[in-house]
Design a protein around this nucleic acid. Structure first.
Lengths: 337, 337
DNA sequence: CTGAAAGCGCTAACAA
DNA sequence: TTGTTAGCGCTTTCAG
């Protein structure tokens, strides 16, 4: 039971090896009758070309790597879907590298995706070992782009969403509803995105002539949102609205307020960030900022493939605009009426 | 700027090509001094072997494919993490294939992972095109296993969690707390897992001498859970406990009950299924059934690699036990006291 | 412990 | 339009 190779097709079809190869590569310079003969022979034999041999002969693999920390996030999910689709459309496919937290300590140097020319290019998705990766990828001369970078002024091509504007608009929305006591629950400082969202909030507040009130958290999750609100309330802070730096934080905040007898949105308005899948499913539906996941993924692929095709020209980073989605968790400020 | 190849290492180190290859493959039959020479030369040159050449020469790629529909699910997330880790430990890595809903109509025949011997083996993760995939993979003689199959009696090696037992134990837990009016919100019939969980529930209820009450849903999500409860309440069904076939459904159910003025768990007990990440973060914390994601992933890898190593011997399917996690959303039945 | 020789299956000039 | 001739970079017998 040997593997059928191109030679078997040659024999069966009666044309030369090169012609078969041409059919494989959709060359136009093959007589139609021969093409049919070859195609038929392939079908009869159940022939499929060997990717290894093709990669070796061409010098490229058709594989694009993507590194990430977690999959359990609907924004990343959306991005990866988009990346995957764009890639498939171009004849590439995706190899996954999941950095377990344990690996974070490890140097990027030994990263398997970076070894052995396994991939033609790499997408770094919101990674913490950003600096190391960038260094190593440059050293290895592997084309790459970063989606959602965490380093302020990273020396690489990045695809991002403008988190400053997102934070600004979320706050503006609340301001427009007449709120002035707006609390911001901010994500971990480690994230550039969290820092930018906070700056957007502060800018909007300051512009409006109100004092920003920010409470920081260690993680983007429900429990942190819950605890933050409880802590604020205990300190006597009485906001009429909250801008949470992420939907999970918002959900936790909602839980906490409800726990304290507040009604949403009558007594307290809440804005989240990310538009995670649950945002439109919970009650009340969460007003939030949506990330353009589709576009993020597509742009990343477009730019990366450009870099692979023409290593000469300089690619430019991209910064996309987020979008405010108004749902049921925000309402006009009662005190304002 | 040519790519450094094994020949450059040969030249630099002074030993033969074969010896270099041996060092590459950790052969023990290399004199230590030579090994060092080679290693040093590789380092100096910044040499990394070509995966394509290795694959071609060896006849295997070191790639394992995994197909899935969505990433935004913390159970899948956990499984993939586990798969990824086990795989890396064995020197393999993961290629991802995400079936967009659009692709579901397509035949598996053209699936890129299945072409060109791209992968040494495949893990099918909870796929709907199961039947087609199984057929095609068998035809192509690509080793594969299925995690969470949807076809009752699929002709393939599967790694599963016993959903019947899960459903049974969830219900038993409620029964043990004195509940007898237990509503089951079941997932879509399309899922074997949903059907099994329901059977477990029905069995437990029947054994206890109570009548099962099941309401079906179209999807595993929050909104369906919410609507189901609202519908039941409207119909005059007044359960003291709910076993939801999935955590999202449970979350929606909690929302609905709260909306109707019920307190959890004082007035109504809720059990979910899956132990999604939010289960332990919401308020009250959700009692649920945890899937052994770690084990699922590990077993899948173990079995798959076994199949790849020894295609001769028959691999056996595996069925793991789920675990009840008791948290705050369940309490003794008030009427029962 | 080491090396020479023979591929792995395909693509890419270069001619014809 | 087709075929000939070289490799692509590595692993693997099989002798030494």
């Amino acid at each position: 039971m040997k593997k059928v190779s191109i030679l078997d097709v040659v024999e069966k079809s009666g044309v030369s090896l090169v012609t078969v190869s041409r059919v494989l590569n959709n060359s136009t310079t093959v007589r139609e009758s021969n093409r049919q003969k070859v195609l038929q022979a392939m079908k009869d034999l159940g022939y499929t070309p060997s990717s290894a041999a093709r990669s070796l002969a061409r010098g490229s693999t058709g594989l694009i790597g993507i590194t990430l920390q977690t999959l359990g996030d609907t924004v990343f999910d959306g991005i990866i879907h988009a990346v995957n689709e764009s890639l498939e459309a171009k004849g590439y496919f995706l190899a996954l590298s999941i950095a377990s937290t344990a690996q974070l300590d490890n140097s990027a140097v030994n990263h398997f995706l970076f070894q052995e020319d396994r991939v033609d290019g790499i997408i770094l998705l919101s990674t913490f070992a950003e600096k190391e990766y960038v260094l190593e990828l440059k050293r290895k001369k592997i084309p790459f782009v970063i989606i959602d970078n965490h380093i302020e002024d990273t020396k690489a091509v990045t695809i991002n969403v403008d988190n400053f504007i997102g934070g600004y608009e979320a706050t503006r929305h609340l301001l427009d509803l007449g709120h002035s006591q707006i609390l911001h629950i901010s994500g971990p400082e480690l994230y550039l995105s969290a820092r930018d969202r906070r700056r957007g909030y502060e800018q909007a507040m300051t512009e409006a002539g109100f004092a920003p009130t920010v409470i920081g958290t260690d993680e983007f999750n429900i429990r942190c949102g819950f605890n933050s609100v409880k802590a604020c309330l205990a300190q006597g802070i009485r906001p009429t609205a909250v801008f949470a730096g992420e939907d999970g934080l918002a959900l936790g905040a909602m839980d906490a307020f409800r726990d304290e007898g507040y009604r949403i949105p009558q007594d307290i308005s809440i804005v989240g960030y990310d538009d995670q899948y649950f945002a439109k499913e919970i009650h009340p539906r969460l007003t939030t900022i949506r990330q353009p996941m589709e576009k993020l993924g597509k742009e990343a692929v477009r730019i990366l493939l450009d870099m692979i095709d023409g290593p000469s020209k300089r690619s430019k980073s991209v910064c996309l605009k987020p979008e405010l989605i108004v749902r049921e968790s925000t309402a006009e400020c009662a005190a304002h009426k």
